[in-house]
Design a protein around this nucleic acid. Structure first.
Lengths: 251, 251
DNA sequence: TATTGACACATTGTCCGACAATAGGTCAAT
DNA sequence: ATTGACCTATTGTCGGACAATGTGTCAATA
């Protein structure tokens, strides 16, 4: 009988990955900070003892992570990852996993009321002003479906931003890419401009008056309205969401 | 006086990015599905009309997104992104943004009770069995700080998995990487094994008996205990979290 | 029959060298 | 102060090269 010892498969990693990990580590350790310039590709390659080709592959990995970018289309620079950039990877993953509208809605029910609640304590005057501007703009586009959707998405982003909680912003990033855009169909089908405006107004007032409970409740009601809209329009609440327009060229 | 027309800066993108976007698009459109093999690098390069070097850079971008990988260390294959893989990018971003423990805790307060609630409706017998196994294991390692932390993290992952909601899994991924590991300090300082076990048991029972409210409440209490632990141990509730051990070699 | 070994082949990981395009700087001319 | 001419450094892309390694085939062996 053969002796049965299971060796753990040893994971050798290619050079481009090792290089990438090393750079990432240096950045995350704080040794290199956002805004710092990196040496030229040639110099980096020499330091690591690899060729420029290999180094460039390593750079691509970090580039997709959003932690390095190019300043002025030239020099490499350590970058503070933008929520949108990081969120795109997450959204891609969700699309491939055939995430349903229902699943996203459940997450939204967890995060959006929370955002409203937290915003009450942390919103600055500037945040409030931006929300006020958004409301005013919303009033003028109640019948313009495209612009209404845009304003709607903006509003929720503004509330989330007002929490000044980056972890929350990041967690709800996929909602921006997948949840709200899909909701455009509801707007076109039901024209619920008035209901949206009322909910947004209540949330705004709650934030201004520092009433967390109110903000939370109205955001929750707002989300439930979303669900009702999807169901009433028979727009596939249990269907996988689709990538409406993913041709974004952000930076 | 000069006529003032603002041109939008036209965004040319390098070839490696264009190639990457094209492949991503084909995959997200469903034309290529998870598990499908891609042609060899040389063939792909010929199809796009670029060199292998350029194509390889494009591949790296997709690789970091987790949507393609290698089967058997060779052929390129379309992959269903793993939460851990995607989550790493997100965690990196949060670390660079100096996300505080408090921020993560706020997100956890939004997502973990939600996970408990949803799990009640969707947990399979297998899910419940896994939770039961975890509880049993936890009892045996109450004094072993390292193993206890491991079991603790596992438990929350199991609850989240039991929701069968990928969007939720993805949203809470950073909690795994940053929130719970940081909590290891609390375990070492306060040895709250018993409190953990009790909370976990209540959540487990609630899930088995299909009592969403209970599951939600106990998860919430559990999270509040977390916060108390951090504050009592004076472990920096308002400090940025640090990447305890980020030397993970996952696939 | 099932395992082993030898061998050829395809593909990747890595290297090297090359060149056009362009961002940035300097300096003179206007 | 702006424009234009010029030089330099660096990137984006190319083409070719080779060793290492996974894959497949086929004969030899137990």
């Amino acid at each position: 009988m053969p002796v049965n010892h299971n060796f753990s498969k040893l994971a050798r990693q290619p050079a481009y990955r090792a290089v990438s990990e090393k750079i990432r580590q240096v950045i995350l350790s704080g040794e290199l900070q956002a805004g710092d310039m990196l040496p030229t590709e040639l110099e980096l390659a020499e330091q690591f003892g690899v060729t420029r080709s290999t180094l460039r592959e390593a750079i691509r990995l970090l580039e997709e992570s959003g932690i390095i970018g190019r300043a002025d289309r030239k020099r490499l620079v350590v970058t503070l990852p933008q929520t949108a950039a990081v969120g795109r990877s997450v959204s891609s993953a969700m699309l491939m996993h055939r995430v349903t509208f229902k699943e996203l809605w459940q997450v939204a029910m967890g995060l959006e009321p929370l955002a409203g609640k937290l915003a009450c304590a942390s919103a600055t005057d500037e945040d409030k002003q931006r929300l006020a501007d958004n409301l005013q703009r919303t009033e003028t586009v109640l019948e313009d479906h495209a612009r209404l959707l845009e304003a709607e998405i903006d509003f929720h982003n503004l509330v989330a931003s007002a929490t000044h909680n980056y972890a929350l912003l990041q967690a709800r990033a996929p909602l921006n890419d997948l949840f709200y855009p899909a909701w455009g169909a509801v707007i076109r089908a039901l024209s619920p401009g008035q209901r949206i405006l009322v909910a947004h107004r209540r949330v705004y007032e709650a934030i201004c008056n520092n009433k967390p409970r109110e903000a939370e409740r109205w955001m929750e009601k707002h989300m439930i309205d979303f669900r009702r809209g999807i169901e009433m329009g028979n727009l596939g609440f249990d269907q996988p969401v689709t990538s409406a327009a993913n041709t974004s060229g952000q930076n």
